[in-house]
Design a protein around this nucleic acid. Structure first.
Length: 543
RNA sequence: GCGCCCGUAGCUCAGCGGAUCAGAGUAUUGGCCUCCGAAGCCAAGGGUCGUGGGUUCGAAUCCCGCCGGGCGCGCCA
């Protein structure tokens, strides 16, 4: 696949290297986009990197390598205006403007930025996975935004993605939930005599108790409370625009015998031993920092066992790639789960599954930090954020930084600055471009055939070139599991469009120029809409 | 104490397979609507990239120490 000139040029350099410096034939040939436009459209520092090892003058090396590369690149003259050796030995290339403009036509094709694969991989993204013991909090919101965007990005790379939600519907936490609701229904409040020791103090417990009209037995209360909270979570997720393909219940791992099966397999692996009345697994043999208990001295299993059983089902369901989106409070599970899967000796790859860990969201309110504590009940919910700033702004904001970066969500600021949120900047660009195209009374199908040669301004070439980066941005975001780079790309694309829009009139009298500019606008609209949809944000035509 | 992550402009954060990498948004200041949407544009000020070493011709980026912060280190889930 050498569809773009950069890849063709890299190939040419690799051929040149094989001849000029066979011992460094595998040196990475990297092109960067210089910040200063006078340094060309992209630049290569390969000569600087190799000069010392080859004991050659970097500028001379750059010259001879490039001469060889150009010789190995038949279309060089049509793809490039030329190159120059700059400074200590940089090689700067200038693209033929026609090539930059070609991105406009590509962007107007269906499927722009998306890859078609003959054999799609089966990928699973597991995220949110909140237990039904309370409303979703902002951390879940971050996971929902991240997981959904990651899934979309991987789909855009041509793979088949399953969005999955895993939850515990029968463990100790659920028991505490039932006890809390039962106590509340009897008129006992948190802290009062008779309140369960690990009870949930949030007000939603009182709401559930109030809504409950069934018999007093714990089992009925439990079923009602779980059902109530599951529905509430679903409503929030729907409003957030997230849909799951599979909801996987932890309890099914027990009822299907998968937990027993895993215990047997682990025991048979010869990696277990008895100590202090418990059964341990030598996870340290697989990179964990300490061995783990699988069966407690009271005969019950630790949660580690269903965790392994669950991930075994992922493997058996044919997911060759699995991404778990979790908060850093689950940091310890990575090594454990991977070690457990290895111990099963059923051919699961070593790094399976992948993890995207995000740091917890800190919430500032009234100048003070609100601690996120599910048990205390005094945490900001996803619903709060949705009510305050809306779905698009929450999504965009939550995807505006790296997953593992600390995140301070200033509630007061988010409320006060609703209209200054960066999401409006990008959405406005989309609405604006829609508005211009809407005012033109021409035939939209003509735009794809527009003579783009009329576009000669620096801003137009830069905008076209920016459009051309979109597929790379999407591919890299998918590969690096970093949706935030799409967000940053959209911001810069919007900025470039706003700037262009202010500098040049689109609907000029000259028909050829007008049509060419409209084609550029249509390409911008398409790219903004595609990018926004990847991060789950709407692209309104009017605001 | 050990492990992982993070310290970049007043604030919130990008950049971190080294060079052409000192950036964006926001806040502050000054300009731009008789003309396609001013939720916009143009411009200015603002940082020895936590700190001290090391590697390198070249370090925000790689390595080590230190300081500061987050998370994890259960026969809890």
């Amino acid at each position: 696949m050498t569809s773009d000139p950069k890849a063709r040029l890299a190939d040419a350099y690799r051929q040149a290297l094989a001849k000029e410096a066979p011992e460094h034939a595998d040196a990475p040939v990297v092109f960067e986009k210089p910040r200063q436009p006078e340094h060309g459209d992209f630049a290569c520092s390969i000569a600087l990197q190799l000069a010392k090892r080859l004991k050659r003058n970097p500028r001379q090396l750059a010259e001879s390598l490039t001469a060889a590369a150009v010789a190995a690149y038949p279309q060089f003259k049509s793809d490039f205006l030329g190159y120059e050796i700059a400074g200590p030995g940089f090689i700067n290339f200038r693209l033929n403007p026609a090539l930059k403009l070609a991105a406009i036509r590509l962007a107007l094709q269906p499927g722009w930025g998306f890859v078609r694969k003959a054999k799609p991989d089966s990928v699973q993204v597991e995220f949110v996975s909140a237990n039904p013991t309370g409303p979703l909090h902002v951390g879940h919101g971050r996971q929902a935004a991240l997981g959904d965007a990651l899934a979309s990005l991987i789909e855009a790379q041509g793979d088949k993605v399953t969005r999955e939600f895993y939850y515990n519907d029968a463990g100790a936490q659920i028991h505490n939930l039932a006890l809390s609701v039962q106590a509340r229904a009897r008129g006992v409040k948190p802290g009062e005599p008779g309140w369960p020791s690990d009870g949930y103090a949030g007000e939603y417990i009182a709401e559930i108790a109030k809504a409950y009209a069934g018999p007093e037995d714990l089992d009925s209360v439990r079923r009602f409370a779980v059902d109530y909270l599951r529905k509430e979570q679903d409503i929030d997720l729907r409003e957030f625009g997230v849909k799951f393909d599979v909801y996987y219940l932890e309890s099914s791992l027990y009822s299907d015998g998968k937990v027993d099966e895993v215990v047997k397999a682990l025991t048979a692996s010869g990696k277990t031993y008895e100590k202090d009345g418990a059964l341990w697994l030598r996870t340290t043999d697989y990179g964990d920092d300490k061995d783990r208990v699988i069966r407690k001295s009271d005969g019950t299993y630790t949660y580690f066992v269903p965790d392994v059983a669950y991930h075994l089902t992922k493997w058996r369901r044919g997911f060759t790639k699995v991404i778990n989106v979790q908060g850093t409070d689950h940091l310890g599970t990575t090594a454990r789960v991977r070690a457990g899967l290895q111990a099963l000796k059923v051919g699961v790859p070593q790094g399976y599954p992948d993890y995207v860990m995000h740091s917890m969201v800190r919430v500032m309110r009234g100048g003070e930090e609100v601690k996120l504590s599910k048990r205390a009940g005094s945490y900001v919910t996803l619903r709060d954020l949705l009510d305050w700033v809306g779905r698009d702004a929450v999504r965009f904001f939550l995807l505006s930084r790296r997953a593992d970066a600390d995140f301070v969500f200033d509630v007061d600021l988010a409320r006060a600055q609703t209209e200054e949120n960066p999401v409006y900047y990008v959405q406005y660009a989309h609405a604006r471009v829609c508005s211009v195209i809407g005012q033109w009374r021409g035939d939209a199908s003509r735009l794809a055939q527009a003579d783009l040669g009329a576009l000669t301004h620096e801003r137009e070439l830069a905008l076209a070139q920016r459009l051309g980066e979109f597929p790379d941005v999407v591919a890299e975001a998918a590969r690096e599991l970093s949706p935030h780079s799409v967000t940053f790309y959209l911001r810069s694309l919007a900025a470039e469009f706003h700037s262009y829009y202010n500098a040049e009139r689109i609907l000029v009298d000259d028909e050829a120029l007008r049509t060419a500019r409209l084609a550029l606008c249509a390409a911008v609209r398409q790219t903004l809409a595609s990018g926004l949809s990847l991060i789950g944000v709407g692209a309104p035509e009017k605001m």
